[in-house]
Design a protein around this nucleic acid. Structure first.
Lengths: 240, 240
DNA sequence: AAGTGGTCTAGACCACGTG
DNA sequence: ACGTGGTCTAGACCACTTT
């Protein structure tokens, strides 16, 4: 219960944050270099980094690649149960969205995708890999696996906007029910690289498995978010 | 794209995990000491700790206090939209649940609680603080704030089981709709201490704000989970 | 009492991003 | 080319847990 030893790195955390507030550093602004900070606070780089990591874990600052430390913007509110597209709800909250398609291809159903979707292994499936930005900070990457049976020619369309909207407007496809999975994980490999974070950076995984009006597999969505980027907000019940 | 430098700590991560699999270490088993590992793998404690932290971030191992590193058990599946109590769904998945009430008291509605619940600041409210275990590992702590208007004498009851079940069976109260919030955060202070983790340990925050059949505030639930402890799983739609 | 993990120092070299 | 963050070494002391 007692906290006799309040370690240096936690004291530094407090000093750092006070300093940041005093300086009125705002969203996406860069902190001084680690060497400069370690001098200013009379300690080692290792210890300053521990303090910075603490603030990072709390979601107050973030780092980008080898570029430095920055102030974390406000979390984006997100309701994975709604059909509203990314661009729309980001705009609604007063931010600027952007989507980048990193690749899209027609590929074959893998064993794990088969198990989730019910499609046969080796059957054709669209695979789209995209990165989404809010105010020019990349917040998530997402893999979309789409059943081509119901939306031939999808890859010919632009995928820089809402795939949902396209499925609804062009193909009259709407999800009837969905299985959603959410859990924290460490970002690694392709996902970590694409988001310019170190392997091991904390992330949040959101998977949405959607079936259409006839109960057939429509789409599987696998999203990898930065841990400090979003706040999931859902209302349950209240269906009139 | 290229990965010319595959850092030592990531190589160690791989070696460590291979070693763990070869040794067939199972859930909740302890790893050798850091000094022993750093000798075995011909490196420093600092670097071994970096490798261990990587595995921790990935949810493969966890640490407890100053006691050592352990193999992480399988994630618990959890559906925050259902009314099923903790004890029941833990048992359903073949684990052993336990709940410990750390304190319970009648207190006054604070400003932030007032904003969430609609109760007036200073009005009476029950506050229960509990810790929940699965297979004797503490996975979460939870604050319950309950409207005493509808369930007088609640604090006299045992709170080591499901509060939901009690509200339903003894007071005929069931949630009509709920606002749920979920986001990753760092565990700190009381929550970190109660779960025997360091300040800054990755966690998942789940908040459930429930209103009863008449639309009145019933209960606010604030849960702090270990990041590696759960997998949220929800089905949306499909209501027949 | 012994051993553990938690913290901290004072250096160093490297790969990478930015000018 | 320079400065940055990322990584790594070889120590040390302390608080705490366990024996």
């Amino acid at each position: 219960m007692s906290r006799f030893d309040y370690p240096v790195y936690l004291q530094l955390r407090d000093q750092l944050w006070s300093w940041i507030e005093a300086e009125k550093l705002s969203s996406q602004q860069r902190l001084p270099s680690e060497r400069e900070l370690s001098e200013r606070f009379h300690t080692t780089r290792v210890t300053i980094r521990q303090a910075l990591s603490q603030l990072e874990a709390e979601g107050l600052i973030f780092r980008s690649n080898r570029r430095g430390w920055y102030i974390t913007p406000e979390r984006l509110r997100y309701d994975p149960s709604r059909d509203v597209g990314f661009n729309r709800y980001v705009t609604e909250q007063g931010f600027k969205p952007r989507t980048e398609t990193l690749f899209k291809q027609l590929t074959e159903v893998s064993p794990w995708l088969s198990e989730a979707s019910g499609l046969e292994v080796g059957a054709p499936v669209y695979h789209v890999f995209r990165r989404r930005y809010v105010d020019e900070r990349g917040l998530l990457v997402e893999h979309n696996y789409i059943n081509p049976a119901h939306c031939p020619g999808l890859l010919g369309e632009s995928t820089d906007l809402s795939i949902w909207q396209m499925l609804r407007d062009k193909y009259d496809l709407r999800p009837e029910h969905r299985d959603i999975e959410i859990y924290p994980l460490a970002l690694k490999g392709l996902e970590a690289d694409s988001l310019s974070v170190n392997p091991g950076a904390a992330g949040l995984y959101i998977q949405r498995l959607s079936f259409d009006q006839r109960g057939e597999f429509l789409e599987l969505d696998r999203e990898y978010w930065l841990h400090d980027a979003l706040k999931i907000s859902v209302r349950i019940g209240d269906r009139h």
